[in-house]
Computed example of a mutant assay.
Amino acid sequence: MNTIRPIHTNEDYQLALKEIARLVDLDPAVGAIEGDKLEVLATLVEVYEAKHYPMTLPDPIEAIKFSMETHGLRPADMANYFGSPSKTSEVLNRHRRLSITMIRKLHKGLGMPLEVLVQDVALS
């Protein structure tokens, strides 16, 4: 790929990925031109992927359970975020929706993304 151009098709996308792989494998001493080319191609690929392969957000309850697991927390440890052990159980078992207060506490205390937490939760 000698020139950089927009990525419109899957073929363009594949060529850009190959060129990125080639540029990454080069010796860093090759120069700033290759570094600039790599940066531009990576940006173009990122835009193409965002449009054609959008990432979906995880389910809020599953995300909370994952966060609990990664932080080594048990349901009993979550009362500070949900208000009480019974509310914790209700939320984790999909019998209660997250409140704004819960969302704020989970975001601030566990660093959970707001865009994940504000999604609608299917209740059982």
Rank of each mutant, 00 (worst) to 15 (best):
V121D: 03
P28V: 04
M1E: 09
D59H: 02
I100Y: 10
D36F: 08
F66H: 10
E19H: 09
E46I: 02
E34D: 11
N2F: 13
V116S: 08
N10K: 15
N2T: 13
E49T: 04
T56L: 13
G111S: 05
L117S: 07
T3V: 07
P6T: 03
A29L: 15
L57P: 15
R96E: 07
R74S: 13
F82S: 11
G72F: 00
K108F: 11
R94E: 02
L23V: 06
P60G: 05
K87N: 13
L38F: 07
V47I: 12
I4R: 00
S67P: 14
S84M: 05
K108T: 13
L123Y: 03
S89N: 13
Q119S: 08
R5C: 11
A76P: 04
E69A: 14
S84L: 05
I64L: 07
Q119Y: 01
K105G: 10
A42H: 07
L114W: 05
Q14V: 08
S99I: 01
T56Q: 13
V116T: 07
A21P: 08
P28M: 04
T3M: 14
A50M: 10
Y53F: 11
V40M: 14
Q119M: 09
A122Y: 06
I20N: 09
R5N: 14
Y53M: 13
L57Q: 10
V121K: 02
S84E: 06
L44E: 05
P60I: 01
K105C: 06
M68I: 09
F66N: 12
V121R: 00
L114G: 12
H8L: 15
D59T: 03
A29H: 09
L17V: 04
Y48P: 12
V91T: 01
M78F: 02
R97S: 15
I61R: 01
G109V: 02
L57E: 10
L44H: 08
P6V: 02
R96I: 04
E34W: 03
M1S: 14
L106A: 06
L41I: 01
L73H: 02
V47W: 04
E115L: 12
I103L: 04
V121N: 00
L44K: 10
M102W: 01
P60F: 01
S67H: 05
M1H: 06
A63Q: 04
D77N: 15
F66M: 12
A76Y: 00
K87P: 11
T43G: 11
H95S: 08
D36G: 15
L106K: 00
I103P: 12
L114P: 15
N80H: 07
S124P: 11
H95T: 01
L23M: 08
A79Y: 03
E49Y: 05
M78P: 14
E62G: 13
R94H: 03
G109Q: 04
Y53I: 04
L117N: 02
E69S: 11
L17A: 08
I20F: 02
